[in-house]
Computed example of a mutant assay.
Amino acid sequence: MSDETPVEKLSFEQAMAELEQVVAKLDSGDVPLDQSIALYQRGAALKKACADKLAEAEEKVAQITLDAEGQPTGTEPLDTQ
């Protein structure tokens, strides 16, 4: 994955993979300060993109699990797992 690809163009899986790479690079401690700052900014954007995509997916799941009257169809809430 290239940090030149706009974050909004990445799938959730691509963003997560790149975020893991960013974290690994920052954890290594072998990155110059300027590059560390750029990596941190990219990582923050990737984290936000992942969180946004997860929230969107949760909303879709919530809509799917409601009946025509907006009542739960007997499924468990998402946060009980």
Rank of each mutant, 00 (worst) to 15 (best):
Q63N: 11
K48F: 10
A45K: 02
D34P: 05
M1Q: 08
E69M: 06
T73D: 14
G43L: 03
Q71D: 07
L54R: 05
K47W: 13
L54G: 01
V31A: 00
D3Y: 13
I64E: 06
G74V: 04
K48Q: 12
E8G: 07
M16H: 10
L78R: 06
T73G: 14
E56K: 05
F12K: 09
V23Y: 06
Y40G: 07
V7W: 02
G29L: 01
T65G: 12
M1T: 05
K47H: 03
S36M: 06
D52S: 01
T73I: 15
A49L: 05
A38F: 09
A45T: 03
T73E: 12
A38P: 04
K47Q: 08
L54A: 12
E58D: 13
L19A: 02
M16K: 14
A62N: 10
E18V: 09
F12Q: 09
E4C: 11
K9T: 15
G74W: 00
V31S: 03
E59M: 03
D79P: 11
E76M: 07
T5A: 13
V7C: 09
A38G: 05
K48V: 10
A44D: 06
V31F: 04
L66K: 07
T80C: 15
A38E: 08
P32W: 02
S36L: 04
Y40E: 13
D30T: 10
E69Y: 09
G43H: 04
K9H: 12
D3M: 15
A51D: 07
S2G: 12
E13R: 08
Q71S: 11
I37T: 03
D3Q: 12
A57D: 00
Q41K: 15
I37P: 01
A62S: 12
D27Y: 05
K9A: 12
D3F: 14
P77W: 06
M16A: 14
K60H: 08
D34E: 01
Y40M: 11
E58N: 05
I64Y: 14
I64R: 10
P72D: 09
K48P: 01
L10E: 08
V61M: 15
I37A: 02
Y40D: 10
A57G: 12
Q21V: 11
S28K: 02
K48C: 00
E4P: 13
P32Y: 01
L33D: 12
A15K: 00
V61F: 15
V31D: 02
L54P: 03
Q14K: 13
Q35H: 11
G43E: 01
L78M: 07
T73F: 05
A55E: 13
A62C: 13
C50G: 00
L66V: 00
G29I: 00
Q35K: 12
P32S: 04
Q35R: 07
D30C: 08
P6Q: 05
S28D: 00
A57V: 03
E56V: 10
Q71W: 15
D30N: 04
D79I: 15
L78P: 08
L39Q: 10
A68C: 10
T80M: 15
L78C: 02
A49D: 03
Q21A: 04
K60S: 07
D67A: 03
L66P: 01
R42T: 03
